[in-house]
Structure formats: C-alpha cells, structure tokens
Amino acid sequence: EVTIKANLIFANGSTQTAEFKGTFEKATSEAYAYADTLKKDNGEYTVDVADKGYTLNIKFAG
C-alpha cells in the first residue's frame, strides 16, 4: 500500500491537501477522480507530478 499526496491549489490562492491510499494505480486514479469532481466549481486543472508520482500538485484555473 502506498499513499499519494495531492496538493490542491485553487485560483483564489487557498490550498488543501488530500491523501489517497491503496496500490499506486488505485490511489493515483482516486486522486485524479477527486480533482475531476472539483473541476465543476473550480475550473480546469493542471497537474505537476513530483516525488516520482507520489505527490501531485493540482492547480485549478478558477
């Protein structure tokens, strides 16, 4: 089991951190699915992958 950390960075400057656990593939998939649910209210997003994929910096356009 691994932990994927998602740093969520919103257009208004606020930030939030979420963690997803499971296999690497499952946790990564859940992180992207979570970002997709936030897209409606926060706009499109870009992802900067860090720490060999264990950290995702997800920035929303607003």
Rank of each mutant, 00 (worst) to 15 (best):
E1R: 05
E1H: 08
E1L: 12
V2E: 11
V2K: 05
T3I: 10
T3N: 06
I4Q: 00
K5W: 10
K5R: 06
A6M: 12
A6L: 11
N7S: 06
N7F: 14
N7T: 12
N7V: 12
L8Y: 11
L8A: 05
L8D: 00
L8Q: 01
L8T: 03
I9W: 12
F10K: 04
F10A: 02
F10N: 03
A11P: 09
A11Y: 11
A11I: 06
N12G: 10
G13K: 12
G13E: 08
G13I: 13
G13R: 02
S14D: 15
S14N: 13
T15H: 11
T15A: 06
T15G: 07
Q16I: 15
T17Q: 15
T17D: 09
T17G: 13
T17H: 07
A18K: 15
A18M: 15
A18Y: 07
E19D: 06
E19S: 13
E19R: 06
F20G: 00
F20S: 01
F20A: 01
F20N: 00
F20K: 01
K21W: 07
G22W: 01
G22S: 09
G22Q: 03
G22V: 00
T23H: 10
T23E: 04
T23P: 07
T23M: 14
T23V: 15
F24M: 08
F24K: 13
E25C: 04
E25D: 15
K26M: 11
K26T: 08
K26L: 09
A27R: 00
A27Q: 02
A27H: 00
A27T: 03
A27F: 00
T28D: 01
T28E: 08
T28I: 15
T28H: 06
T28W: 12
S29E: 12
S29M: 15
E30D: 14
E30G: 07
E30F: 08
E30S: 14
E30C: 03
A31W: 02
A31E: 00
A31I: 14
A31G: 04
Y32G: 02
Y32L: 09
Y32W: 11
Y32M: 06
Y32F: 13
A33D: 08
A33N: 13
A33C: 03
A33S: 13
Y34P: 00
Y34I: 05
A35Y: 02
A35P: 01
D36N: 12
D36H: 05
D36P: 01
T37M: 12
T37I: 08
T37Y: 14
T37K: 14
T37S: 14
T37Q: 12
T37N: 14
L38D: 01
L38T: 02
L38N: 09
K39W: 07
K39P: 01
K40A: 06
K40D: 12
D41A: 14
D41Y: 12
N42C: 03
N42P: 01
N42V: 05
G43T: 02
G43Y: 03
G43K: 03
G43P: 01
G43H: 03
G43L: 04
E44R: 06
E44K: 12
E44N: 09
E44V: 12
Y45R: 01
Y45D: 00
Y45Q: 01
Y45E: 00
T46H: 06
T46N: 09
T46Q: 06
T46I: 12
V47D: 02
V47I: 05
D48H: 15
D48T: 10
V49W: 05
V49R: 07
V49P: 09
V49N: 10
A50I: 12
A50M: 08
A50R: 14
A50E: 15
D51K: 04
D51G: 04
D51R: 04
K52I: 12
K52A: 13
G53Y: 02
G53L: 03
G53T: 03
G53I: 02
G53Q: 04
Y54R: 07
T55C: 03
T55W: 06
T55K: 10
T55E: 11
T55S: 13
L56E: 00
L56Q: 01
L56N: 01
L56V: 07
L56P: 00
N57M: 15
I58D: 00
I58R: 00
I58Q: 00
I58C: 03
K59N: 06
K59W: 10
K59T: 14
F60N: 00
F60R: 00
F60H: 01
F60G: 00
F60D: 00
A61K: 13
A61C: 04
G62F: 11
G62W: 05
